[in-house]
Design a protein around this nucleic acid. Structure first.
Lengths: 193, 193
DNA sequence: CGTCTATTTGAATGTACTCAAAAGCGGTGG
DNA sequence: CCACCGCTTTTGAGTACATTCAAATAGACG
């Protein structure tokens, strides 16, 4: 079943009846995306909150100069999407792209609203989800403020050991807030150790 | 009543019965703090989630070299505190300090747990609170990744027009991720325009 | 007025970026 | 199987952005 993985995650935080679980499961649109496909493009209101079943996606922002900035890498078990656009239905500024062939679940905005209306119990799940995500974002901000690029790279490697094997280095550089050229120089320097 | 302000904020997102409102209100410990006092210190599990009624507090992190990094400025109507420490009851790494004489409300961790247990309706309030906070943190990360110090400062001024009047510049520099000296130079340059 | 802290200034330094070019690497078609 | 193409990664030189350190100035408070 395509919703097995997400139900596991939900069950860690709240306990569902069979009815609730099956209603919840019924809301998702399963989708297979190939590498480099973009389930969500920028400019229009985001339609889906995305759960990753397998593979890896990233959400990123393109600035006025045309430089990409990676907001998030989302591997199996993670949610991703453009939250401001999804919640307020304003034009999105983050694009989402598959870094590998991936299986994802799409939760349409109206379905999420209905879900929370019908079974308020899920408020708790999303409260905890956002709370944990907030904590991660805070720690990323602290990192960016206090650590040099080399340390941020080392921390990144520790936190996401497998990602480097299939995510192009230029995207990792972007996530870290440095240029690909400079990341390359950091890596050369670290090789010598 | 000391909880008037926070009830207003809560009522924007959920509708409370009188009983719910009065139970909610009863959980808070009102406290007046003077400038530079610290309702929460680092090193021990954080006891309170803090709501600011009036004045201004900041939460900040001190790194190994002894440099402070401001995580957040919290003015009237905002929540603040060390979220990882509060939720998981692990030793805190963020300190909280009053930047002006302030009136705050303390919500003890056990009270918050009881509240969500007894009236799950509040899950929705905190879900929306964390969701909005998450959006703000994402936009700060994007800013830090894509904009130079001067632009970050200008954005900060637009977003928090009044803060500069009573927050020492060195803390604003810290929030922006630059040294006080460099902020001073940015300001001199902007004066000439 | 004196003390303490915040802010400014300037020179020297370090960190990271830009630009241009070369090298590497994966896929595709002949 | 090899040659070519497009894209990623590496290299190096020059430059820009931001820090460090030391010292001077300014402001707040008793």
């Amino acid at each position: 079943m395509t919703t097995t993985k997400i139900l596991e995650s939900v069950n860690k935080h709240i306990t569902l009846t069979e009815e609730e679980a099956s209603y919840f499961s019924s809301l998702f649109l399963p989708l297979k995306v190939k590498q480099n496909e973009m389930p969500e493009k920028i400019g229009e209101p985001t339609r889906y909150f995305i759960h990753v079943n397998s593979g890896c996606l990233m959400s990123y922002f393109t600035d006025q100069e045309g430089n990409d900035h990676v907001m998030q890498f989302a591997t199996a078990g993670w949610w991703t999407g453009d939250l401001p656009s999804f919640t307020q239905q304003i034009p999105s500024i983050h694009a989402t792209r598959a870094l590998t062939d991936s299986e994802i679940l799409l939760l349409p905005k109206p379905s999420m609203d209905q879900l929370l209306e019908k079974y308020p119990k899920f408020e708790r799940y999303f409260r905890i989800l956002f709370q944990n995500s907030l904590i991660n974002h805070q720690s990323r901000i602290i990192q960016n403020l206090s650590a040099k690029a080399e340390d941020r790279y080392l921390t990144f490697q520790k936190k996401y050991p497998s990602l480097e094997q299939y995510v192009p280095l230029k995207y990792i550089a972007s996530y870290l807030g440095i240029t690909p050229e400079f990341l390359s120089k950091i890596r050369r320097k670290l090789m010598g150790k």
